[in-house]
């Protein structure tokens, strides 16, 4: 049997069995694409230089996330770029400089090597762009029907500079709420890309790294109170987290929310709310009011913050709640998203 693989080769159980087929897959796909001295050494663990880490700050930030998405490839990214940017952003919104990632693949038997290569290339490109290195990894293959094509887990390590302290508990009445860009692009893109709703629009996921923007923000305003990336559950979920952690109500202003026409169209047709849609390259920050305008100006200079806007404020009401002031002057409560987004006809 030949062990060489090309893009049309289908992954089989042999590619996860620890033998020569697996070796071949790892070398041909993962190491070839990723490169990097740590991976090339092929040891069982990455070895990180502590002196170098210490020189960058006084705390390590460490995070993990697993990525499952249907479809695996979508306008603006794939599960690979998502798995890098998602973990980079989880580090970034803690104020950390992201440095190293691990990646673990669970692959369902039967997918083409070509797809896997595209995913790994997506990871590589995203890592290059974010300036992080994939230093260790793992692959497992599961029998057909026991997985959903590809699952990826990434863990990330970053360093937080001395003096940077972002905590949702620090939100104070009067603080402004800033979002770094348009809302719901990723969620709407995925709904469209699944194809079963047969919607067509020029949508693209906002999947991108945010640590550059975060570093710029911290340089402009070291007093930023809290920051989260608004992934699953959208900014609705993030604001509920802020409200719960700080004990203060949050208020958004509907007319200040940046929503692209295409995302709005998807929401109108399906009866959904962009505030509940996932984002993969958007952060929400709570900042002292006196710095908000200056911070907004510098955020808009950064490619990841061009459409940033001040969207609301922390209220002097000691109750964990999120309100939306409508353009008409009315108020409504923004519910925590329910879980699965169900399109409505009524």
């Amino acid at each position: 049997m030949t062990l060489s693989i090309n893009d049309h080769t289908l992954i089989t159980m042999a590619h996860g069995a620890g033998g020569r087929a697996m070796r071949c897959l790892i070398e041909e796909v993962f190491i070839n694409v990723f490169g990097g001295e740590q991976l090339l050494r092929m040891e069982d663990q990455a070895r990180l230089d502590m002196a170098q880490l210490s020189s960058l700050g006084d705390r390590l930030a460490y995070t993990t996330d697993s990525y499952v998405i249907d479809p695996l490839e979508f306008p603006g990214g794939n599960i690979g770029s998502l798995a890098v940017n998602g973990t980079v952003n989880d580090l970034a919104v803690g104020g950390a400089r992201p440095l190293y990632l691990s990646c673990a693949f669970i692959i369902e038997e039967g997918i083409e090597v070509g797809l896997l290569r595209r995913i790994v290339e997506g990871m590589r490109d995203a890592a290059l762009r974010a300036g992080v290195t994939v230093v260790t990894g793992d692959t497992k293959v599961v029998p057909r029907g026991k997985g959903d094509k590809v699952f990826i887990n990434t863990s990330g390590i970053g360093v937080i500079e001395h003096g940077v302290n972002l905590h949702a508990t620090q939100c104070q009445p009067g603080d402004k709420i800033i979002v770094s860009g348009s809302l719901g692009d990723h969620g709407a893109t995925i709904l469209q890309a699944r194809g079963d709703l047969a919607l067509e629009a020029d949508l693209q996921s906002d999947c991108q790294p945010l640590h550059g923007l975060v570093q710029l923000m911290l340089a402009e305003c070291p007093d930023i109170r809290a920051m989260r990336d608004a992934t699953r559950g959208g900014i609705a979920a993030v604001l509920h987290e802020f409200a719960t952690a700080s004990g203060f109500a949050m208020r958004l202003h509907e007319e200040m929310l940046p929503v692209k026409p295409e995302v709005r169209g998807v929401c109108e047709i399906l009866g959904l709310d962009a505030l509940h849609f996932a984002n993969e390259g958007r952060l929400v920050a709570v900042v002292p009011a006196k710095h908000a305008e200056a911070l907004l100006r510098s955020m808009r200079q950064h490619p990841a913050g061009q459409d940033a806007n001040i969207i609301g404020e922390v209220l002097d009401k000691a109750v964990a709640r999120v309100q939306v002031a409508t353009a008409l002057g009315g108020e409504r409560l923004l519910e925590m998203p329910d879980g699965e987004l169900l399109p409505r006809i009524c």
Partner: peptide
């Protein structure tokens, strides 16, 4: 009515009763 917070905008003395027109 809920989405735009209309009830909070209407003057007192108007009571909106939510009817049976929700098939679910």
């Amino acid at each position: 009515i809920f989405r735009y917070g209309l009830e909070s905008l209407l003057p007192e003395g108007i009571e909106l009763i939510h009817g049976p027109g929700c098939p679910v």
